[in-house]
Design a protein around this nucleic acid. Structure first.
Lengths: 334, 334
DNA sequence: ATTTTCTGTGAAATCGGTTTCCCGGGGGCC
DNA sequence: GGCCCCCGGGAAACCGATTTCACAGAAAAT
């Protein structure tokens, strides 16, 4: 393990000078610069980032906390964040909370203790206390997808109410009157808002909302659908509350010999990369994940560079991506 | 920012004693222990992990380097590794190389400079030099999925040759004679081995291998399939070299009005979570990702704890998961 | 009663960098 | 020629923990 002192000795200068050269301090004589560079090359010296971070109080890691990295929505988010972080010379501490409040707390505390540069948190729980811990230490927090209880955090979310409304309206305009919402966990914000958006739109059209309640997961959706399809009155269209559930819904439909969009029109919420390749290609309303990730990173950077102190809240609209599963290709609704 | 010295002062003891109490050193008097705990609680003290790591030369982060976190294969791997790491109190530095040699090098150097506990690397390039950097510093490296050029690294891979053979044999036994391999990048190890396994099996059965060459990605596979289906002689069965390509293949088949398994039997390689829910449910040979991840973590821990110094190489068999897309459900082939 | 051995604690060194502070010498200005 | 300022560089402090080492005082041994 070669240290800065060894480099200094080898170059016949002080550690301070080595540090200056390596950090691009211009006030060092060319002669010295050269000697330092030679010594660095000769010894294969690489600075210890831990030591540097300790002294400078500046860390190059960003914490990313999600509930399930296997969920394509979060994979995409992490991927987008990584792209941007790499460009800025940062790296990612990825934390998977599994929807567990305890795991989320443990990870947030860990990130605080690691003195990361910032945290992007897709909270599965409000996490007020732990976020306070972070913000009190000057670590900026951006809430992603869902709000958090600490008002000082920045927020980047998608407009779930409008998103669900867009999905529902698309089906209503196509002439459907019996549109069922295959819902996920209305105990969490995202789920509740999407449900609201759907129900509101239905009522406004003079129709009664009808919900098949599930849990945001494949099997749950499949079970809910099996039940729904066994009921006397079969709906003509569905709004499905997230990407995983869509998979379950399609499986259940296949088991019953039903095809979208003819037997049952379908609009999904979320747009995983394989949605265009499903049978039928899925019409969806999608959160613009990459844009949201870009905003989250920008909010972090603003804070880190001290350009801003008051919290910001950015709401993104969902984007309609019309493909086949919704049926009618009426251009006026596009 | 409250430090250990402040805690010490508040408790009327020395920093050394505080450190001892917090690290469970039993030789501290009960009176002192109590005073320290009180002070910690009163001040809300949390140890700085950076400082601790610097002093102890022991880091709690594990580097995970993959080519694309959005690929379900790697999402699953990261997820599995995270589960195990969390249990051991470690966290994950996730690095996305995008198949770029430069990004891979940069990340590996960064991990070396961060003095991580260990690295799990799914290499898109041999990376001899950088791995040397890590191992020279006592940071263990486990190669995942593919080998690396540095012989001192541990290796956890799946037997791609046998895996492709299993897939091919399944189709041959079902009576197919014209089995085409939709291949991915035979310039990389994984691709080359799978191709070998397929070709070998065909030749051994007295048949000529036939390959639709693509790039491990959805669109590439779709294009290759479109070309293949335009050719005069349409095959009766396909082996598809990875999960993404399967999606592209199914899309192309749908465009041509073909259905699996009747028009074209299908066996995929890799088993993403949605494979059972596709239309038709996909028969696959799968790498046992979670087991492989568990082995990788165990290899790391062996090294870290000093239980082992000589490199190990673990080869996992692929697992056949027979569903619908392969056609005939002949139990003798199971 | 005196020496020896523990035992528990604090002072100080350490990890490997960065940054402050200070100092010698050269150039510019009066 | 004398004074001041600036420039480049080194010594030492510092970041916040852990760990070594030394040392009181009590307990055990003689």
């Amino acid at each position: 393990m070669v240290t800065i002192s060894q480099v200094a000795e080898h170059a016949g200068v002080s550690p301070a000078t080595v540090s200056r050269v390596l950090n691009g301090d211009e006030r060092v004589g060319d002669e010295y610069k050269q000697r330092v560079h030679d010594a660095v090359a000769a010894l294969g010296y690489r600075p210890n980032r831990l030591a540097r971070s300790l002294r400078t109080q500046r860390r190059s890691a960003i914490g990313v906390v999600v509930s399930d990295i296997e969920n394509p929505h979060f994979s995409e988010m992490v991927r987008a964040v990584e792209d941007l972080a790499y460009g800025a010379g940062h790296h990612l501490l990825v934390c998977n909370t599994d929807e567990s409040a305890e795991k989320q707390r443990t990870y947030l505390e860990m990130l605080a203790d690691e003195h990361v540069l910032g945290v992007i948190l897709s909270p599965s729980h409000p996490a007020g206390e732990e976020i306070g811990l972070l913000i009190d230490r000057g670590i900026p927090v951006v809430a992603f997808d869902r709000e958090v209880s600490d008002q000082r955090a920045d927020v980047v979310i998608a407009d779930n109410v409008k998103g669900a409304r867009t999905a529902t309206e698309l089906l209503l305009r196509a002439g459907h009157t019996d549109v069922v919402y295959v819902g996920g966990r209305s105990d969490v914000e995202t789920g509740a808002e999407r449900l609201d958006g759907y129900a509101l739109t239905m009522r406004r059209a003079g129709l009664v909302p009808r919900v098949a309640e599930a849990d945001f997961r494949i099997e749950g959706a499949r079970a809910a659908m099996t039940e729904l399809l066994a009921a006397p009155q079969r709906p003509t269209a569905l709004v499905v509350a997230n990407n995983l559930m869509t998979v379950g819904v399609l499986a259940a439909m296949r088991e019953h010999g039903l095809r979208a969009p003819d037997d049952l029109a379908l609009v999904g919420i979320d747009d995983p990369f394989w949605a265009p390749y499903l049978d039928p290609p899925l019409t969806v309303v999608a959160q613009p994940v990459r844009k949201m990730a870009a905003d989250a990173m920008e909010l972090l950077h603003d804070r880190v560079s001290g350009r801003r102190t008051e919290p910001r809240r950015i709401v993104h609209p969902f984007e309609l991506r019309r493909r086949v599963s919704c049926g009618t290709a009426d251009p006026t609704t596009q």
